[in-house]
Design a protein around this nucleic acid. Structure first.
Lengths: 133, 133
DNA sequence: GCGTGATTACTCGGATACAAGATGTCCGAGTTTGAGCGG
DNA sequence: CCGCTCAAACTCGGACATCTTGTATCCGAGTAATCACGC
């Protein structure tokens, strides 16, 4: 029960892409080098973000990744769901007669966390991160 | 990023032990049979609950497990921490100069969920579960 | 100068390898209860 | 009736086996920009 490293990479990459702005795309190499991860692996992660519609990719020379326009209100939850999936953290999987009460409470607890992450926008950190790093 | 089945087993067992009361201990067989899991595996899970001080074990014939007295205010979080550990769900693991802002936000989000689970007491469900099952 | 082809710098996707953790089983050891047996 | 012994019913702990998932690498394919070359 931990968040995967991929989520960590994805969040950091998103913040950096936001700081870079919507100009020319950023290649995988500088992004990977900055985080100390192999470019090929990071590209697999970024592919998920592309499919989720959070960023867009540009093929060919001078290609790379770029934040999607008009989506600077992307939340933490958007990124996490793109990487980890949207499935519930807890599933009872027992054959109860009715709906499992434990399951209900666990899902409500999870909803508390998700609500917080839904309200937190990445763009709030972009500025601070740029100078902190 | 999912809760383990062990947590599910632990929560269900705790609720059932509460419904059973603090009289004579309950053996592993009936508990395991009810949840469709092998007794030996369940015993490993319950050992963690014992070490966390949530339940106590009685060796020998007519032995088994029993809820600890004066602890009917056991919360969901107590059980989860006993099984999953108390480590944070998110760890940045990057060599930033300062504290990672992403890490801070993720921990706050997690704290939202934990707070909910800390307030939820198992005893609230014990009665309902008894008749629902 | 201008098109055309080759080269280069990228992303994309699948296949594969590796490691770690979750899940589950097996077995021997210790512990308590209770029955049986002999005095 | 009493005490002793022994068997049965348990938990406990470690050592495995297995399966899934996360992590990571490699390679071929496609794509776009740029450069070189010939007309």
């Amino acid at each position: 029960m931990k968040y995967s490293k991929a989520t960590n990479y994805a969040l950091h990459t998103m913040v950096f892409l936001m700081a870079a702005g919507g100009g020319k795309p950023v290649g995988v190499q500088p992004l990977a080098e900055r985080q100390g991860v192999s470019p090929t692996y990071l590209s697999k992660i970024l592919t998920k973000l592309v499919k989720a519609g959070l960023i867009e990719s540009a093929s060919g020379a001078n290609g790379g990744y770029r934040i999607r326009r008009h989506q600077e209100d992307i939340s933490f939850l958007d990124v996490i769901h793109a990487i980890e999936g949207t499935a519930s953290l807890f599933e009872c999987s027992m054959e109860h007669s009715a709906e499992c009460l434990i399951d209900q409470e666990m899902r409500r607890a999870e909803e508390q966390m998700e609500q917080y992450l839904r309200d937190k926008k990445l763009v709030d950190l972009a500025g601070k991160m740029a100078k902190a790093r």
